[in-house]
Structures are given as C-alpha cells and as structure tokens.
Design a protein around this nucleic acid. Structure first.
Length: 328
DNA sequence: AAGTCGGGGCG
DNA sequence: CGCCCAGACTT
C-alpha cells in the first residue's frame, strides 16, 4: 500500500487548490450536512442541488422538518427518486427533535433511520470532525485503482478491505476534508470510463495507472437484467380538474404518491383517444407508458381531483408529470 | 448475498 | 443500450 499520509497530503493539497462549489460545503450545520448526504445517496451532486436549495428554504431547521407533514416532505422530494429516503429523513428528524440534539457520535448517528455506514461516516467526519473514512462508489473506484486491486466490489469482504485502505489513508486532523477530497477525486478526475490520470494528484502512487489497468477497475461481477414492460395511464378530466389515484402508505413503490389511474385499477373507465407514449425506467424495469384520454362515472376514496396549481404541493410521481407534459 | 427502490447523464 | 451515481433496507 502507498504510504497513507502521502496519499492524504497529495489529496488535501489538490482539494485545497480548487474544488466544486457545492452548496452543502458552505455550511457547518449538521442538519444541512445530513440533508445533503441523504440526497446524495445514489444521486449525482448536480441533480441534488436544486432539491437541496428548495428543501432548506421550506425546512430551514430540523425542528421545521420534524413539525412538517410527511406528504409535504414527499412533495419536495418528488422527482429525485428513492422516496424511502424522504420518509426516513422525516422519521429521523422527529426522533432527533424529540431527543433535543443531533447525535454527535458515530454509533448514535448510524442508528437513525436512513443512515447506513456511508452516511454515518460522512456526517461524523464532515459535521463533527470524527475520524471515519467513507466508502462510496467514488472511493471504491479510487482505492481499486490506486491499489490495482481487481477483487469484486459486489463482495462484502472486498468492500470492507477497501474501506480499511481508505481508513489507513485518512488524515485524522481533517477527516471531513479528506473524505470530501477523495470523493471529489472520484467524481471529477478518477472517472468510471475515462480516468484523467494526467490531472490526477495520486498518479505518482497509483498502481493501476502504472499497470495500465486503471480504466478496467473496479471489477463488479454482478450485473442486472432489465425487463421490458408496457403500462397504460389514463388522463381523466372533469371541470378543469384531473383525476389522480394515491398509492397506499404500504405500497412497495412510491408509497403515498399520486399517479394517473390505469385501466386495471379503474375498470369502469371508458378508454378514449390515444394521446401518446413515452419511455420510463424504474430500476431494472423498462416501461413503455401509453397514455389515453378516458372518462369515468364515479371513483373510490383513494382517488382525488386536482387542478394544475396543486401539482407542486402534492407528491406527484414522475410518470404522471411526463404524461401530462405529453398532453400539453 | 441478492433484490429492490428512481431517475437521469453519459459514452 | 448498459453502466453509474457522495446507498439503505429487506428478504
């Protein structure tokens, strides 16, 4: 292994010379850092920024979030994906508000709903200066390349070994900057397809670059199989309002979200003109969504009529938004 | 350990 | 078209 303190020094010097000006790097408020880390789970920084800004205007403090209704939190999260993040964030806010203070130790942070190993280490290091190395997709890639390690990163043992490597590199005097620098490197230089080794501060101590294997690392053996599906959505208008159906609170996907009804859910509907279609992907399901106009007599209580002005205030799922855009 | 959850960007 | 993204949780 390259000497840890050398990696840390090179990384921190590189990071100090310049990095992206992300909004959550302008605060030391644990609540804001927490919100950012939840939004950044499996989400690119650029995609999270507008959601982060809006969320903190609406919920500027942990107490404000804890006092909110779950549906209002979901409405602000609509479009960002992985909605259990929003529900867990809201649940955890209520736990922390009841306790009176944001937890300052790794184990207590890790115990909150929606906070796993990565997020606990990120909050502990960035908000409280605790010496915990983060392990995310960026760090996995940088470690695999610097160490020229072709082990399968889908394996838990490999991930634990890589985390230990990052922990060995960590500069415990500034763990927050170190972790952010390592992730920044993965996000801007040590890119998945085309690592920009000529710009990399770790090039001189990167065994993957030396061996010419960097672009092939890391190795991930497990791969996903995507399934093609088709689904019909109905646009039913009455007196200027649109009919939507709310998923139950225990629905597997998009719980609590409003969506356009389908002919299966609403067999009484009379399906009319075909308005168009669009593609939509959910994890490994690739849908072709076909949109029809329709009419209906009466509907159950899970349905509601909404006008366009309300679409920003409710958790409205992306398929419905896309379908409505189609009909404009 | 494998499956699931969203949605978009990129080569 | 497949892979990846500042992962967590359930089975």
């Amino acid at each position: 292994m390259a000497a840890g303190h050398r990696v840390a020094r090179l990384l921190l010097e590189w990071y100090a010379r310049g990095h992206r000006d992300l909004p959550w790097r302008r605060t030391s408020d644990p609540y804001r850092i927490w919100v950012s880390e939840i939004m950044l789970q499996q989400t690119r920084a650029q995609a999270a920024i507008p959601y982060y800004e809006r969320f903190l205007v609406r919920f500027p403090t942990l107490e404000a979030l804890a006092a909110a209704r779950e549906n209002d939190v979901l409405a602000l999260w609509a479009g960002l994906g992985y909605y259990s993040r929003a529900r867990n964030l809201w649940r955890a806010a209520r736990v922390v508000a009841a306790a009176g203070e944001f937890p300052r130790q790794y184990d207590a942070i890790r115990a909150l709903p929606g906070i796993g190993d990565y997020t606990a280490a990120a909050i502990a290091s960035i908000a409280f200066g605790l010496p915990h190395a983060v392990l995310d997709g960026n760090v996995l890639r940088v470690v695999a390349r610097v160490e020229n390690d072709a082990a399968d990163i889908a394996s838990a043992r490999t991930r634990e070994r890589f985390r230990a490597v990052a922990q060995g590199w960590l500069d415990s005097r500034e763990p927050g900057h170190f972790n952010q620098a390592l992730m920044e490197l993965g996000a801007t230089v040590c890119l998945p397809r085309n690592p920009m080794c000529l710009l990399c501060p770790l090039a001189a101590c990167c065994q993957g670059r030396e061996a010419g294997t960097a672009a092939q690392l890391p190795v991930k053996l497990r791969r996903t199989v995507t399934v093609e599906l088709e689904r019909t959505l109905l646009v039913i208008r009455r007196r200027g309002k649109l009919l939507l159906r709310q998923n139950g609170p225990d629905a597997r996907r998009l719980a609590g979200f409003w969506d356009l009804p389908t002919p299966q859910e609403l067999p009484a509907a009379r399906v009319g003109e075909r308005l168009g279609e669009f593609p939509h992907t959910i994890t490994h399901h690739r849908y072709t969504i076909v949109v029809h106009a329709a009419t209906v007599r009466r509907v159950g209580k899970e349905y509601g009529w909404f006008d366009a002005a309300q679409f920003g205030e409710i958790p409205l799922c992306t398929t419905a938004r896309k379908a409505l855009k189609l009909t404009e």
